[in-house]
Amino acid sequence: MPVTDVTTDPEALTMTLVAEFAAPPERVWQAFTHPRELARFWGPPGWPATFTEFDLSVGGRVAYYMTSPKGERAPGAWEFLAIEQPHRFEVLDSFTDERGDPVEGLPSMRTTYEFTAVDGGTRMTNVTYFASNEALEQIVAMGAVEGSTMAMNQLDLVLEGLREYAQGKGTQTELLSDTHVRITRLIEGPRELVWRAHTDPELMKKWMLGPDGWRMSICEVDPTAGGQYRFEWEPVGDTEGEAFGFDGETVLVDPPRRMVTTEHMTGTDYPSTMNDLSLVEEHGVTLVTVLIEYPDRDTRDAVLATGMTEGMEASFARLEREVMG
């Protein structure tokens, strides 16, 4: 992981994050100062960022908002105080309301980003300065350490490119916390078609089957916010097992980029999960990312122990073979 250290200093009233990236300072600078690239890692998992304004000049303003899996927005803004391309910039970082005005009761913070060349790449040092210890404690209590760490740990994907980052690795499962798992799979094909494969029942029946020997007997899906879905699978031929299914609701949809759904095992009292699907395309390939939120660690571990990753890999391989062509 790129982040090597995060420390808070109550006496100096600072929070310092240090990360190292296998890319030169010029490339890391580009990722932080081009809004399309910055949007891909700025928000922590489950809270992707959308930039609506970006003026890279001293006194210039940056406006953005992060969107939760349930659709809540958390807006913010920067004002550039200093720019020394490609080694350093300084901003006034503020929480804002929907109009772009600072939120009363939440601090604005002076923040510096420095990019230093080291063997093998770049060391980034990010220092946030607070006006009081109360402000520092408030931001830490809001999850700034964890959120910043998870956000910066996503930057490798942007710096390397999708093919270099994920090609040939199959379906990857990462434990992000006791309740969050991230699953990634690179698909050889355009995002529009991958999106259709996740929302068109006829296409879904071709690939969303898990291991060989199963068929999707029920595929009812309404990919609109508030829409319901129901899937069921049954064994065929000599395959052993009993039919099972899942049902849930579409919570958020942003075609063809993101869809958030709940997932519940039909006919059981098992708790539901929140599944956050996102698709990113680059040079004709699409990275599928599914962020799953479980109710607790025991449920997470029980689901992973079923062989979920292997079943998803079988399905994704079938998606490339049967749908992408």
Rank of each mutant, 00 (worst) to 15 (best):
T4E: 11
T4Y: 01
T4R: 15
D5R: 13
T8G: 10
T16A: 07
P25Y: 03
E26P: 07
A31G: 09
A31P: 08
T33N: 09
P35Y: 07
R36I: 00
R36T: 12
L38D: 02
L38W: 03
L38C: 05
L38M: 12
W47T: 04
R61T: 14
V62M: 10
Y64M: 15
T67G: 01
P69Y: 04
P69Q: 00
A77D: 02
A82R: 13
D93F: 04
S94Y: 07
E98D: 14
R99A: 15
R99N: 12
V103C: 04
L106F: 11
S108H: 06
M109N: 10
M109D: 03
M109G: 02
D119V: 11
M124R: 06
T125K: 09
N126V: 11
T128P: 01
Y129G: 01
A131N: 14
A131L: 09
A131S: 14
A131Y: 03
N133H: 11
I139K: 02
V140D: 05
A141Y: 01
V145D: 12
E146C: 01
E160L: 14
R163K: 12
Y165D: 12
A166D: 08
Q167E: 15
T173V: 15
T173Q: 11
S177Y: 06
D178N: 14
R182H: 03
I183R: 02
E188P: 00
G189D: 08
P190A: 14
V194Y: 01
W195N: 01
D200A: 06
P201H: 09
E202S: 09
K205Y: 03
K206S: 10
D212N: 12
D212H: 12
G213W: 08
S217C: 10
C219Q: 03
T224M: 01
G226C: 07
G226E: 09
R230G: 02
V236I: 15
G241I: 10
E242W: 00
E249I: 12
E249Y: 07
V251W: 04
L252A: 04
L252E: 11
D254T: 11
D254N: 14
D254Q: 15
P256S: 10
R257G: 08
R257I: 00
T261P: 01
T261A: 09
T261E: 11
P271S: 08
T289D: 05
V290S: 10
E293R: 13
D301W: 00
G307H: 09
A314D: 15
A317Y: 00
R321E: 14
G325Q: 15
